[in-house]
């Protein structure tokens, strides 16, 4: 039954895609930080969510912009999953997949665009990102915008720290943020690094 179901669903989704009924495809991939729910629309990645289920806020935002045609379609998420794999293996320092920020507010777009300029292995602060975005005094709002960054890792909000150098916050949890920063400092060997103890 399971196999029958999987085959049947693949054919169904392929037909929906051909008929233009599918606007956004999603898939769940395993990562060293746990499962990630990835949604890709016609203009690029719309969401990378920590967990195997979508966040209600992500779904609502996607449906507002692209309608209800949001379907499980691993093929759409594959290119993102591949780049994430390479990144986690230490073989990729920047992402080539397109990101779609059009469903966000203008302020969020500016903050995330400024964040995307912070390169692999570098860090910045909420204040500096706000300044780059042309909103020098909005460091607190910048922090909030980054806290609800719908495309973490690819838009590297983990590289943004509090002005005193402490970690600040992170949607995937501070442990995930710490591990991503460690990976980028070259401190994490490819493969297996998530399995080390919490206090490594």
């Amino acid at each position: 039954m399971n196999e029958l179901m999987t085959d049947a669903r693949e054919r169904l989704v392929a037909r929906a895609r051909r008929e233009g009924l599918e606007t956004v495809g999603y898939g769940v991939v395993d990562s060293p930080l746990g499962p990630l729910w990835i949604a890709v629309g016609p203009k690029g990645v719309l969401a990378i969510h920590y967990g195997s289920e979508p966040a209600a806020a992500d779904l609502a935002r996607i449906v507002r912009s692209y309608g209800p045609g949001v379907l499980p379609d691993a093929r759409r998420a594959d290119p993102v999953a591949r780049e994430l794999d390479q990144y986690f293996a230490g073989k990729r320092k920047s992402f080539d997949v397109a990101v779609d920020l059009s469903t966000l507010t203008e302020f969020q777009r500016r903050i995330l665009t400024a964040t995307a300029q912070v390169g692999f292995g570098e860090v910045s602060s909420y204040g500096k990102v706000a300044a780059t975005a042309g909103r020098k005094k909005a460091s607190r709002a910048a922090g909030q915008a980054l806290g609800s960054n719908p495309i973490p890792i690819v838009v590297p909000c983990h590289r943004i720290l509090a002005s005193d150098g402490s970690l600040g916050g992170y949607a995937g949890g501070l442990e995930a943020k710490r591990r991503l920063l460690t990976l980028e400092r070259g401190g994490a060997p490819a493969g297996g690094w998530i399995r080390r103890g919490r206090d490594d």
Partner: peptide, 16 residues
């Protein structure tokens, strides 16, 4: 809210 939710919630029983 989405086709995917409808599908994931009911596809097994409809197939059966």
């Amino acid at each position: 809210a989405t086709f995917g939710e409808l599908l994931e919630r009911h596809e097994r029983e409809i197939f059966a």
